Simulated assay, not measured.
Amino acid sequence: MMRRLYGLTFVAMIVALAPASAHAQSADLVLCDRLAADAADPDKPADIKGVADVAPADIETAIKFCKKAAGASRRAMYELGRAYAANRQMPEAIAAWRRAADKGSTSAMVELGVLYGTGAGVTRDEAQARKLFEHAAQAGNPRGVSNLAALGGGGGGAPADPARSRELLAKAAETNAEAQYQLGLMLAEGTGGEKDDGRARALFEKAAAQNHPGALERMGAFSQEGRGGPKDSAAAKAYYERAAALGDEDAKKALERLRCPYAIKDKRGNLVTNLCF
């Protein structure tokens, strides 16, 4: 299973900015970052924490200050798009992301790529999605790498290439939990190369340590089955519980199977009920 792609759309937009001093512009960017910075954006300075989503109470302020800072900062333009998206102003969000991408924002490229990959708000165009992800990946954006791999790794509209996907994911897996998870899946399934449960488990364990829901679920399954390492029922349950708490549906089902392990079937082999304890 591959992680779903995240993203939005595009249109043209012109942001009118009033003249401002360097000091005022810097203050605008500080406030924009505080309210709308993306924790995963490679453009983000290390001392800025970022937010998963722009808080509803902060949307209006974020739009105001990010709009002021956007003329001199591609990061602010990308963050302006995030603020518009949080306010469900998708044409404006798309326009901001397009302008940020034109200035070299790899995070904006990823957002636009997702739109094309999923057909959300634009005509679905996998070749265009791949092109955007490829540009972001070549610049070192981990989400660009993992999303390109999810499309199959072929460049410029080329057919899917699982071996190339492995290669791309391996680069991002050094630091990115999603890439670790996806590469682990390919190794566990033998997709694009040799099957290797040991390496897959090691990658799942790294991603699980970063609270990746899918990796936690996979660690539960590998621990339960003894794949790629020791069998440990207690550890399996703990991993499933952590994944389930983060919303992973497969982990929830696994916990239910642990609770109700005995299946009662009719003479045709159809499940009648489960015995629970």
Score class of each variant (00 low, 15 high):
residue 137 A to M: 03
residue 137 A to Y: 11
residue 138 Q to R: 15
residue 138 Q to W: 14
residue 139 A to E: 05
residue 139 A to Q: 01
residue 141 N to W: 07
residue 141 N to I: 09
residue 142 P to G: 03
residue 143 R to H: 14
residue 144 G to Q: 01
residue 144 G to E: 06
residue 146 S to F: 15
residue 146 S to M: 14
residue 148 L to M: 12
residue 148 L to F: 10
residue 148 L to Y: 05
residue 149 A to T: 12
residue 149 A to M: 11
residue 151 L to V: 07
residue 151 L to W: 09
residue 152 G to M: 11
residue 153 G to Y: 09
residue 154 G to S: 07
residue 156 G to N: 15
residue 157 G to S: 12
residue 158 A to L: 00
residue 158 A to R: 02
residue 160 A to G: 09
residue 160 A to P: 03
residue 161 D to E: 12
residue 161 D to F: 04
residue 161 D to M: 07
residue 162 P to R: 02
residue 162 P to N: 08
residue 163 A to D: 10
residue 164 R to E: 15
residue 165 S to G: 10
residue 165 S to L: 08
residue 165 S to Q: 11
residue 166 R to C: 02
residue 168 L to M: 12
residue 168 L to Y: 11
residue 169 L to T: 07
residue 169 L to R: 07
residue 170 A to W: 03
residue 170 A to P: 06
residue 172 A to D: 02
residue 173 A to M: 01
residue 174 E to Y: 10
residue 174 E to N: 10
residue 175 T to E: 06
residue 175 T to S: 10
residue 177 A to M: 06
residue 177 A to S: 13
residue 178 E to H: 13
residue 178 E to K: 14
residue 178 E to I: 15
residue 180 Q to C: 01
residue 180 Q to L: 03
residue 181 Y to I: 02
residue 181 Y to E: 04
residue 181 Y to G: 01
residue 182 Q to A: 08
residue 183 L to E: 08
residue 183 L to Q: 05
residue 184 G to H: 00
residue 185 L to E: 02
residue 185 L to T: 00
residue 186 M to S: 09
residue 186 M to C: 10
residue 186 M to H: 09
residue 187 L to P: 00
residue 188 A to F: 05
residue 188 A to V: 00
residue 190 G to V: 03
residue 190 G to E: 01
residue 190 G to Y: 01
